[in-house]
Amino acid sequence: MTATSEPEAALGVLPRADGSAKYSHAGYTVTAAVNGPIEAQRKDENPYEAHVDVIVRPAAGVGGTRERHLESILQSSLSHIILIKNFPRSLIQIVLQVEDSPENDYVNTKLVQGNLNFAIMPALFQTAVLALLSAGVPMRATATATAVAVVFHDGVKRTVVDPSPREIEIARSVHVLAFTSHDELLLAESEGDFIVKEWDEVYETAKKICCHSAPADDGMQMALDEEAAAGPDMRHFLRSTMESKVAADLYWK
């Protein structure tokens, strides 16, 4: 299954936008464009802070109520990490285009409009953060996100990181968590049937993926065996992606 693949990203893929990023992980590929701060429409103008406008475009068809919901979740979370108070009366626009999503190899791929798609949320969130970094939009902190599912299989409980569509379908509960680079919980969306104790375990798993960064000095000595089982190290991924971008930009230094 594709779920265990490492995340990949490319920055500045759209030359006309102020910032852009293409990100693929766990079967999802999303491209984001960020423009801003630019002049806001009169109705969106806020005298104290920038308006963050998130637009999610699905892989096929036009956005519906589900996309509106995803947009509102992303908007409130991203507004928190962008320094929106620095740009009153302006607009920061983030357009997210889903390019590819994993084929559901089990059920017929009917477009279910209303149902919330949990697995795509981390990909959308991560792409948006990368594009914001690429645009140089001033931010309070960076953030990382992941999806975790709790699956009961033959009576055995398993915690699955970056679940596939099939795993989500049979999962007892599905969770999406995002943490800022200051280890604060930024976003938590859970659905299904779970108890507080299970949520705690999910929290631990997600925190490990989102916040555990390899020590910068001895990156070679990363405990590889353990990493492979626990899932990708998102913060390290974000840092190395940005480091190579900065190195490319400042090649002349």
């Binding site: 979740i73 409130s76 979370s77 507004s79 928190h80 800022t180 200051h182 604060e184 919980l185 930024l186 976003l187 938590a188 969306e189 859970s190 659905e191 299904g192 049937d193 779970f194 108890i195 507080v196 949520w199």
Partner: peptide
Amino acid sequence: TKIRSLEKQGGT
């Protein structure tokens, strides 16, 4: 208690 859904957003 069974939790059916948990949604938190917009801050830390």
